[in-house]
């Protein structure tokens, strides 16, 4: 059986969020919800300042606290290591959000894609409304709706349930890489099988000293980070007193 995992090369990453935008696109995710996100930090004071960027997503933890706490097994592990969610069973208690140390699970507070439900028209007769546009185009709730998402999950999740990254399990099933991996212009995301000793991710994990987020919690995340986002050189120095 496979155990899917991801390596993110921070040096290659340019912090452009193509991963997150394409993710939103692939999975028909509503505004304000980020299956793929980031942690940024501006450190130092002028002029010794740097901006750091760590792309984040569901870590698909081996020992996932969200799965342990879910009362209805809506949040569950798949055989291939993916932490999956079944919105049909989700009662919306948000305990997974309390349990997740990474802040990657989102709750649908309102109807998804509010923007596209609007029926108002800007210029009468001259422009359409978001709802009309979607209908005309033939999308579902959003004009650029991706029906392929439906293969393993509701295409758009309803109000009252949580949602999060699924490692694009619907794509993996068809032998395709997760969309964020595919869409990364910098090739900073490398996807593969931890159980396959010859996989590219195992090569990288062996080559560098990868780190994972909040490892001390023992969740055993499946997202590994290598190298530095800002691996700048600096003039050699021993400092001084």
């Amino acid at each position: 059986m496979s155990r899917y995992a991801m390596v993110i090369d921070l040096q290659r990453c340019t912090g452009c969020s193509s991963c997150s935008i394409s993710c939103k696109n692939e999975n028909n995710v509503s505004d304000g919800i980020y299956w793929s996100g980031k942690i940024t930090e501006t450190s130092g004071t002028f002029p010794n300042v740097r901006f750091h960027y760590i792309p984040t997503l569901c870590n698909h933890c081996e020992d996932a606290p969200c799965v342990r706490g879910c009362p209805t097994r809506a949040m569950h592990k798949l055989d291939n290591g993916i932490t999956m969610h079944n919105p049909k069973k989700c009662i919306g208690c948000r305990y997974c959000m309390i349990n997740c140390p990474y802040g990657v699970i989102y709750f649908n507070w309102s109807n998804p894609h509010e923007f596209w439900r609007d029926k108002r028209v800007l210029i009468k007769g001259g422009t359409s409304s978001p709802a009309e546009e979607t209908r005309k185009v033939g999308g579902k709730e959003i004009p650029y709706y991706n029906p392929e998402r439906e293969a393993t999950l509701s295409g758009i999740r309803a109000k009252g349930v949580v949602e999060k990254c699924t490692f694009c399990d619907h794509r993996i099933k068809k032998g395709k890489l997760p969309r964020c991996v595919d869409a990364c212009p910098a090739d900073a995301r490398i996807f593969g099988d931890l159980d396959d000793p010859k996989s590219q991710i195992n090569k990288l994990i062996g080559k560098f000293r990868p780190f994972r987020l909040k490892e001390s919690l023992g969740t055993k995340p499946g997202v590994f980070y290598i190298r530095d986002f800002s691996s700048a050189a600096y003039p050699r120095t021993k400092g001084g007193i």
């Binding site: 009362p71 209805t72 097994r73 809506a74 049909k88 069973k89 989700c90 009662i91 919306g92 208690c93 948000r94 709750f107 649908n108 309803a158 109000k159 009252g160 349930v161 949580v162």
Partner: peptide, 11 residues
């Protein structure tokens, strides 16, 4: 408080 109280049947 629950998002989808009708689904408590899944308990």
């Amino acid at each position: 408080h629950l998002g989808s109280p009708l689904k408590v049947i899944y308990l």
